[in-house]
């Protein structure tokens, strides 16, 4: 099922017009901001606030676009949709999935930040 890539560095770099330094800043910002959106989604889910869930998921989804993390994007999109549909029960496992995917992306980004770009 998970045929989608965790993170496509080449595409992300292309979006940044090849500016590696800029991409690293963007990655750092993502590492800093995305946990807040995940936390917001979790909190909304805890109080069965479907609208809040959709908004948090939407925001997270938007922030994933410039990072080029297709799998996380797809999960966030699914979470947003469930929030919109008011299906909090169904959203619970998807939210866990988003959390797992986000961790994958974080790990990948940290690798790039620590290890530099493959030549």
């Amino acid at each position: 099922m998970d045929t989608l890539a965790v993170f496509v560095l080449s595409e992300a770099l292309d979006l940044a017009d090849g500016d590696r330094e800029f991409f690293l800043s963007l990655a750092n910002l993502f590492l800093q901001e995305s946990p807040k959106e995940l936390a917001a989604a979790r909190a909304a889910l805890a109080r069965q606030d479907c609208r809040g869930l959709a908004a948090a998921a939407h925001k997270l989804k938007g922030s994933v676009l410039p990072i080029c993390a297709p799998r996380l994007f797809e999960r966030a999109q699914r979470l947003e949709l469930l929030g919109r549909q008011g299906d909090c029960a169904e959203a619970e496992p998807v939210c866990a999935d988003v959390e797992r995917c986000l961790a994958e992306v974080h790990a990948a980004l940290r690798d790039v930040i620590a290890g530099g770009f493959p030549s």
Partner: peptide, 16 residues
């Protein structure tokens, strides 16, 4: 734009 990553990315594009 309220979402910082999107804003940073878009701002950089416009500056470029």
């Amino acid at each position: 734009e309220d979402e910082p990553v999107t804003r940073m990315s878009m701002a950089a594009r416009l500056k470029r």
